[in-house]
Amino acid sequence: MNPLLEIRDCTVRFGGLKAVSELNFAVGEGELAGLIGPNGAGKTTVFNLITGVYRPTSGDIRFAGKSVVGRRPYRITARGIARTFQNIRLFASLTVFENVRAAFIMHLSHGIFHALWRGPGFAREEARIDAQVMELLEIFHLGEARDALCKSLPYGDQRRLEIVRALATRPKLLLLDEPAAGMNPTEKQELMRLIRFTQEKFNIAVLLVEHDMRVVMGTCHRIAVLDYGVKIAEGAPDEIRKNPKVIEAYLGQEEPAHA
């Protein structure tokens, strides 16, 4: 069977810099996969390629058997890929509830005229969305905060809210860019549980970019390692941990920090 997401020989250049180079990588349906690498390795760039923010200089990206290269980001989301952002991008002037509600627009059956006329069909759909938003918020323990401005939430909650908002688009593949950043150890434990739970409950595939090794190793079945845009290793968490190339790539980065 074909994988859900398939990145084939993808290269992206920014001027003279090859941010991603000849990358081959696939994520299967319902799989929990990880993408790691030192700072500037090109992980976020891979996310931006998959979601259509950047276009690959060469290569192809296929999702559910069809190429997504050159599609506008909102169309790619409609095909079933949702993401969170490394530098949180919530809708700052909206409440927690409204942030999630905005992600339901894609699945609306009503449009301008229903919104103006407000017949029974409109009210029914709004009531249904209302209930679904609340259900999602409750799952992620954000129900209490529904009317709070999203800016006012603690950092960890904002990251979780971004996950909820992404899930509201009903994706088949969820891309998480450093969801544990800024979380304390308890929140990280809870996050790992939530990622696994999400994957099971909604039966979606997850691609996780994360610097916290404990989180990556504890959630993902398979991990790919990027260094300077090149994939240097791929395999199960145990293999990755022992891989000399990976150790070298990380040591090269971390040694000065320890000195």
Partner: peptide, 13 residues
Amino acid sequence: RDDEIAADAMGIN
């Protein structure tokens, strides 16, 4: 208004 990139990523045209 709040974030065009995020809106796009949420499937909003």
